[in-house]
Design a protein around this nucleic acid. Structure first.
Lengths: 111, 111
DNA sequence: TCTAAACACCTAGAAGTTCTAGGCAAGCTC
DNA sequence: GAGCTTGCCTAGAACTTCTAGGTGTTTAGA
């Protein structure tokens, strides 16, 4: 289902995942669906980006997982933030806010 | 002069360049300095990113250049937007706006 | 019962941008 | 004439993301 109006994640995937896990544990597939739902399908989370990202972030100690069962009775890896991950979330959110302000300063210039 | 507080450009470089050229022709070095000034040094434009980007964008027909002289009497490549580049600027600006709104929707969720 | 769809995970390789870390030349200032 | 600034450039590495597959399980429905 290729939808040209959908945006790709452009460097914010980690932040989006960290933020989504802030409210509580969730599995990879669920994270993707929730982000898409919350952005009204404006952001599309590709599985080929998602799973490598979860792997990287686990390695970096920002998240950890345990095997479990979903509400649909499927085997899932339930991820949650670590203490380090909460710190990282805070830092990335701040960085993103500063970044968008900076870009806005350029874009607000008169033609 | 490594400054950890400076942000990198994360996929917005083309947009920043296009926007900076919207007001009139400018050379590469000047584009970088102007963006840094307008963002109060929050964004840093690396020359190793800048020149390849200008090359790419020229190839894609978004910008074109002619050789000239700067106010400092140095040889410069003076870039300006093409018609196609103006279209591209408009599209990228719109896309960026939608993207930031989408990310904001995720980030505004309660913890 | 059998099938199809949805759920849920995964990977290899390619593509693309950006950064690091250099280099070169010319003009200006002291 | 030395050194700084301006101004251009490149090769290669690093990194993320996408494409394009793949697997297995559960459930709904024909």
């Amino acid at each position: 289902m290729p939808r040209t109006t959908q945006e790709l994640v452009k460097g914010t995937l980690d932040l989006l995942i960290l933020k989504t896990l802030q409210a509580g544990p969730l599995h990879g597939y669920g994270i993707a669906r929730l982000i898409e739902e919350r952005t009204k399908q404006a952001l599309q989370i590709e599985e080929g980006s998602l799973y490598p990202a979860l792997y990287r972030m686990t390695n970096r100690g920002w998240i950890e997982f345990e095997w479990g069962r979903s509400v649909n009775n499927r085997r899932i890896k339930s991820y949650r933030l670590t203490v380090s991950g909460r710190k990282r979330l805070k830092a990335e959110a701040k960085s993103w806010a500063e970044f968008t302000v900076a870009v806005a300063r350029v874009l607000e210039q008169p033609a």
